[in-house]
């Protein structure tokens, strides 16, 4: 008898959809309960304690303000979402390319990394006006600010990921006479993916922040623009609506990246230890 016959049967790679949905429901109901209680308590406190609307508008007032300008908020959310997405993709792609170069060239890594890390410490609010001068008043400059933010986390994680392959697996590829290109695509890049997704998850939330900060500096549309104009006119319920929409956008983007991680890195150990 061989030891393989003693092992447990292999579990299915993916559970059926209905099971997974049930699983999601089971894990998320405490959070939903807390959210509902929070909104109810907030609504009640605003009325019972007489909190002034410009300090803390009631959820119903925020909802009313949002419903009064659905097309406007939708259009401006769409613009910010576009800026954030385009900047995220461009910045991440450039970061991945540079991280790859660093992983393969010690000279480039040692030469550029100190400056990259120094540039990474520049606050985005300080660099945004300069980038807007360079890239003009349109959407391009907002994309550039977002790309600037997305660039560094991915460059560093890509480099670290590409260097983190198993040395014995590298010997296996050497014995099998793999070409450098085969070694990159079949070993080093897959080994790097868990790190890449750490970088992408950082970037995706930064990207909404980057787009809105850029809009604060100069813009005539976007959620950042809505927040600045409602702030000047003290239209607080609508400001709250725009703020909540930007938070929702960040969460949605994060979930998209988390979903991509499940598709591309299903083998990774952290996948099976979700709370």
């Amino acid at each position: 008898m061989s030891d393989s016959t003693l092992a447990a049967p292999v579990p299915r790679r993916t559970a059926p959809l209905s099971h997974r949905l049930l699983d999601v429901a089971e894990r998320s109901w405490p959070a939903v309960l807390i959210l509902v209680a929070l909104i109810a308590g907030w609504e009640w406190a605003c009325a019972a304690l007489g909190i002034k609307p410009y300090i803390l508008p009631a959820p119903s007032a925020i909802l009313t303000a949002a419903l009064n300008d659905v097309p406007g908020l939708a259009r401006n959310s769409g613009i910010t979402a576009w800026e954030a997405t385009a900047g995220f993709v461009i910045g991440s792609a450039l970061g991945a390319l540079l991280g790859t170069a660093f992983a393969y060239s010690r000279f480039l890594a040692r030469g550029f990394l100190p400056f990259i890390i120094a540039a990474n410490t520049i606050p985005v609010v300080a660099i945004a006006p300069i980038i807007i001068i360079w890239f003009g008043h349109g959407i391009g400059s907002k994309i550039a600010v977002t790309a600037f933010l997305s660039f560094f986390p991915l460059a560093l994680n890509m480099m670290k990921g590409l260097q983190s392959y198993d040395r014995t697996v590298a010997d296996v590829f050497h014995i099998a006479a793999a070409s450098p290109l085969q070694t990159f695509f079949k070993m080093r890049l897959p080994s790097a993916l868990p790190y890449v997704f750490v970088g992408l998850k950082l970037n995706v939330t930064f990207s909404v922040i980057g787009a809105i900060v850029a809009e604060f500096v100069q813009a005539d549309r976007g959620l950042g623009f809505v927040i600045m104009t409602t702030y000047r006119t003290m239209a607080m319920p609508k400001l709250w609506a725009a703020m909540l929409l930007s938070a929702l956008m960040g969460i949605l983007f994060f979930l998209v990246v988390a979903m991509l991680e499940r598709i591309f890195v299903p083998w990774h150990a952290s996948m099976s230890t979700d709370p």
């Binding site: 014995t168 697996v169 010997d171 296996v172 006479a177 070993m187 993916l193 299903p266 990774h268």
Partner: peptide
């Protein structure tokens, strides 16, 4: 020519 087979102390399988 891939005429050599090598087995290491760790299996070194590709986890993906």
């Amino acid at each position: 020519d891939r005429r050599i087979g090598f087995v290491f102390q760790e299996a070194a399988l590709l986890e993906w």
